[in-house]
Amino acid sequence: MQKFTTLRSIAAPFARDHVDTDMIIPKQFLTTVSRKGLGAGLFYDLRYDDKGAWNSSLLLDKKVYKGAAILVVGDNFGCGSSREHAPWALLDAGYRCLIGAGFADIFYNNCFKNGMLPIVLPKQQVGQLMQAAEAVAYMTVDLPQQTVSVEGTQQVFSFDIDETRKRALLEGLDDIAMTLKEEDSIRAFEERDRTQRPWLWASP
């Protein structure tokens, strides 16, 4: 997994609340067997018309936001389907950090698995960052210090993050490799379980 330490980038705004993962990446892109290339389907229904022609009125598609790696989002972003294609699509389109007042649980989890940082801040602070993004600004996300700052202003906001998640991002750790180190505990659990719930271990 790619490490995440600090990130300086133009921040793109996407103010809509309750953006679901169907909207982030519609179903027709889900038949892929790869994690790559999903950026082409990002926000597809909002960007293309009935006939598949580009017709985006999204603010984030303005030229000034080209290359943005930070996306400031509305409340409850990523609700709905568990499809990890949603963070894959965002990542493929260059976004590595999302800032919002609240994310849906599964989506939030999925981001961390892909070296992406979803930052939760109080609504009022997200509102200020959204304004800054709409006015076009560089922001710096500092994961070790747990801060977001807006360049050229005094705005610096601190955010919370679980220690374990922070470490995994900073070191680019592979969850599975870490869990495999717990093999002894897993085996001990299974041995206990065989006696406590034998019906789950009976061969069919």
């Binding site: 568990s82 990890e84 599964i106 999925n110 698995k113 892909n114 599975i176 869990t179």
Partner: peptide, 9 residues
Amino acid sequence: GIGTSEVEH
């Protein structure tokens, strides 16, 4: 529900 990375896990 879980994401695909968790499916692999």
